[in-house]
Design a binder for these strands. Structure first.
Lengths: 203, 203
DNA sequence: TTAATTGACATACGATCCGTATGCAATTAT
DNA sequence: ATAATTGCATACGGATCGTATGTCAATTAA
């Protein structure tokens, strides 16, 4: 009576969002294993009951958090690659953007560190598949256009995302992330230029 | 009285080995988080008391297990690269050997999946540093000899080990690991050949 | 040889934390 | 208005971890 009642579906979406937000904070700061469900649900003004009702278990909520972050990452990457003038440049920028995103401790901890351990191979996550398949399509197109050498685009996409992922971790864990990031990006660019047909960058 | 007494230091080494072996089996099969200390210490004919005495905590024992596996991996890799005729070939073989090792579920689960989540960035593990620095030295030498293009060997070593690590995970999680392994190795070889000065492999 | 001390390991205990089962209250349907 | 659904809280049992303490054998000292 005293509160202006919103529609029920909206209330539900709100509690889901509150749970995801609180869990996201907890996972990012103390890690998945050390995040107490009692603690961060209370922090959201709720209890574990709500969590189990909406997400099944702790892992289910973790999946939702990862999906949210992953979506944000994909959006940023799409923006980056769409700004590029050439496909090759977009391809480069997208991967470099990925490396630089790992400077975000939230991405570092949740997506890169705990994610694979809790959810398994990142390549099998729904959203990661989107990102990798985008990378694969770009590679295939670049091959068609004669920009890069002959290769299996799918396999190469895995290798490249592995290199950038690892570079990201290296950057994030280094003493001087900014400086290391520059070195990593330069080396990554060199590695990618080796894929060009004539060994000359067109940029 | 009834048992022939071995020297005490030997008994201690034995219990340590038994704990590591039992933990290694448990970590490999059910993963770090689901491995019950009560269970696998009992399986070794001991209790958690011995574990805490020797390794401090669960993570300490996990470190010992990882170190053991890591040492074995390094030995295998060194053998591989020492058999090669040229430095470049050894460099290739060593990395390809790394990819193929990931077919071992023990390595897959303990070193590649749970390891980074529990112990952090693999590049900071003592033994992994040995492996990476070996890779770095090889790259630096190859650059000196004019075999590969100009680059920062340290940064490039990270990227390459990332690519091979990720390829390894891809192989291990695929439906047909043997077939995927072939594709991964081929793509990896192509990626590496891009580093050569003239774009021609000398093998 | 015997007494003292160290140390390897077991046992006991308390504190979390998780998952399920149950309960309640508010909304929706009839 | 009554019944059914459902979002969420509460209550309970079980598993696991870390510490604190105990015990007994092996080494060392006297």
């Amino acid at each position: 009576m005293r509160t202006a009642h919103k529609p029920r579906s909206e209330m539900i979406a709100e509690t889901r969002a509150k749970l995801i937000a609180a869990a996201r904070r907890a996972f990012a700061t103390v890690g998945y294993a050390n995040a107490s469900m009692d603690d961060f649900t209370a922090e959201a003004g709720l209890t574990r009951g709500a969590l189990y009702h909406h997400f099944g278990d702790k892992k289910g909520l973790f999946e939702a958090v990862v999906a949210q972050i992953d979506t944000e990452m994909c959006e940023r990457l799409n923006k980056i690659s769409s700004r590029a003038k050439t496909r090759w440049q977009g391809f480069l920028d997208e991967n470099i953007g990925y490396v630089e995103m790992a400077l975000d401790p939230e991405i570092q901890r949740i997506v890169l560190r705990d994610g694979p351990a809790v959810l398994g191979d990142p390549a099998l996550w729904p959203n990661a598949n989107n990102c990798i398949s985008s990378l694969t399509r770009n590679l295939a197109a670049l091959k068609e256009e004669g920009v890069v050498r002959d290769m299996d685009p799918d396999a190469m996409a895995r290798l490249i995302s592995g290199a950038s992922l690892y570079a990201a971790q290296w950057v994030a864990n280094s003493d001087d992330p900014a400086a290391t990031s520059i070195k990593a990006v330069k080396a990554f660019r060199a590695l990618m230029e080796g894929l060009l047909v004539d060994g000359k960058a067109d940029a």
